[in-house]
């Protein structure tokens, strides 16, 4: 599902963010990528989303070669992954329903299916009652749940979350990470980049530790180091 083979990423300014990393994350796995700031977590996530490409090495995501992929294939590839951002990025002028609907509209889902799918997705994230609320009427946790519903709207094989609990209190964070766990149990591969030790230790899932662009630890039932 996710394969990084001898991957190095050097930015234009000369910063070597990732140094010769090799990682394989199989389909259906829940994986944390942890490490201090500047350890290369975000670069790794960006390479999964094909926002960045490796300078050296090979990256394969959902069967797509990230270096060989053609520009017109990128949208199709991105529909196979869902993304959750730390700053949530909900559209402020749209309700919870409309924010989720937006993801389906963009990919050309018809109105009838949208009307069936959105309530279902909001039910999964536990926000059926808040469908008509605007982002500024929702709590941080609720906003992140809407973002999660949006991320899984197109049925991705892989869900990537970059610091999904970064702006949330511990109790809300646990709620979000448990929701990610439930999504994972439905068959979606989940990769979470975080430095939140509470959620990592609670989930007891695979933990890949990065430091200065290198993998320094990789355990199947890891703890936050």
């Amino acid at each position: 599902m996710i394969i990084f083979k001898d991957v190095t990423k050097v930015y234009k300014n000369g910063t070597e963010a990732i140094k010769n990393i090799s990682i394989a994350i199989p389909k259906g796995q829940f994986t944390f990528i942890i490490g201090p700031s500047g350890s290369g977590k975000s670069t790794l996530v960006k390479m999964i989303m094909r926002e960045e490409v490796p300078t050296y090495g090979e990256v394969f995501i959902n069967g797509y070669d990230m270096l060989g992929i053609k520009r017109h294939q990128i949208p199709t590839f991105r529909r196979s992954i869902g993304v959750v951002f730390q700053d949530i990025k909900l559209l402020p002028n749209k309700t919870a329903f409309e924010n989720v609907e937006f993801a389906l509209q963009i990919t050309g889902v018809n109105r009838r299916d949208i009307n069936k799918l959105v309530p279902h997705l909001l039910k999964i994230v536990g926000l059926s009652q808040r469908a008509n609320a605007y982002p500024d009427e929702l709590s941080g946790g609720e906003q992140q749940r809407v973002a999660l519903a949006r991320a899984i709207a197109n049925g991705p094989d892989l869900l990537v979350a970059d610091e999904p609990t970064g702006n949330l209190d511990p109790r809300t964070s646990i709620g979000i990470i448990e929701l990610l766990g439930r999504i994972n149990k439905m068959g979606t591969t989940v990769v979470v980049a975080t430095h939140d030790s509470t959620i990592v230790n609670r989930m007891k899932k695979r933990v890949i530790v990065l430091d200065e662009g290198q993998v320094v630890d990789d355990q199947m039932k890891g703890q936050y180091i």
């Binding site: 529909r79 990025k89 993801a103």
Partner: peptide
């Protein structure tokens, strides 16, 4: 900006 980023990562085509 945010809308464009979301569209990109949701898989909107460049044309869309």
């Amino acid at each position: 900006k945010d809308e464009v980023i979301i569209m990109k990562f949701i898989g909107a085509t460049e044309g869309r």
